[in-house]
Design a protein around this nucleic acid. Structure first.
Length: 258
DNA sequence: TCGGGCTGTAC
DNA sequence: ACAAATGCG
DNA sequence: GTACAGCCCGACCGCATTTGT
């Protein structure tokens, strides 16, 4: 069995706006075998025709019940053997944050984890989502599945993962409890693939739009590719495409070799 | 995220 | 049809 | 009385939707 997969994950901050800024080029160049996107902010019936008719790709979407909110999607050259559109828990599934695609060589999960900044309630919702997801991933792992987990995790794991750690210790996205969950997730055997190759600070995937932070690189690393330990040897590279514009996040990438 | 305006403390 | 306000991040 | 560190607060951008005229 041998194969090569080039994957990319991108929080596009509104798919329709991203398309106007040239998002579809990423697909038309055919460089990636699988493209995972988050924050599509669109329901399937409002999705532009051209996004559904990209030569060479199957496409799958879930959306929130609330209009213009959340939503994730996958473009895939290979047709997955199976597709799941949620974790099976209504309070999470109604926000369109989870897609799972099963391939012969691995199981892919594309996730837009909740943002906890708005209120205490939303922080609790985020922490609940984290716990349920870890249970879900551990169950698949116990089955011997090879897991690839990507998306917007909405937490910077360590001090090295954001430009202003001290100022944000009490802000959702870098709270002790959020970071502790990421410790637990990693301890459970899920590998932050970017750190397999790059130990340096200054590598971020999100920059605030409000004060021109991106050109000064005042950012956070919120977007990740994780793999289960049984896939570690198949990881060929993991990257941050910080020069690709069109969203307040930039894409992250993973190359797998079987 | 960043600056202004306010407080308090140190010298 | 356009402008302003709102919700969310 | 001046200097400085620390805290609080508000404006800030962009997407999509809803509301108002």
């Amino acid at each position: 069995m041998s194969g090569h997969y080039n994957l990319v994950s991108w929080n596009v901050n509104g798919l329709r706006a991203a398309i106007k800024k040239g998002f579809l080029e990423l697909l038309l160049e055919q460089k990636f075998d699988i493209v995972c996107i988050q924050e599509t902010k669109v329901s399937p019936d409002k999705l532009p025709r051209e996004a559904k008719n990209i030569p060479g790709y199957y496409n799958y979407f879930v959306s929130a019940e609330k209009n213009g909110y959340s939503g994730v999607g996958i473009f895939s050259k290979q047709k997955p053997l199976d597709l799941e559109t949620g974790m099976g828990i209504r309070k999470f599934d109604r926000e369109g944050r989870f897609l799972r695609a099963d391939y012969e060589d691995f199981t892919l999960m594309n996730i837009y984890f909740p943002n906890g900044k708005a209120s205490q309630e939303r922080l609790e919702y985020k922490m609940d989502f984290y716990e349920i997801f870890l249970d879900y991933a551990n169950t698949l792992k116990a089955d011997g599945k090879k897991l690839v987990i990507c998306g917007d995790v909405n937490t910077a794991h360590k001090e090295i993962d954001l430009a202003r750690p001290k100022q944000n210790e009490m802000i959702s996205g870098f709270l002790p409890e959020e970071r502790a969950w990421m410790d637990k997730f990693v301890a459970a055997g899920f590998i932050d693939t970017f750190r397999m190759f790059n130990p340096e600070g200054g590598n971020y995937t999100w920059w605030s739009m409000r004060t021109g932070s991106r050109k000064r690189n005042v950012g956070w690393r919120l977007d990740y590719f994780f793999v289960s330990e049984n896939l570690q040897d198949n990881v060929k590279s993991s990257s941050i495409y910080s020069d690709i514009m069109g969203s307040d996040h930039c894409p992250v990438g993973l190359e797998l070799e079987f």
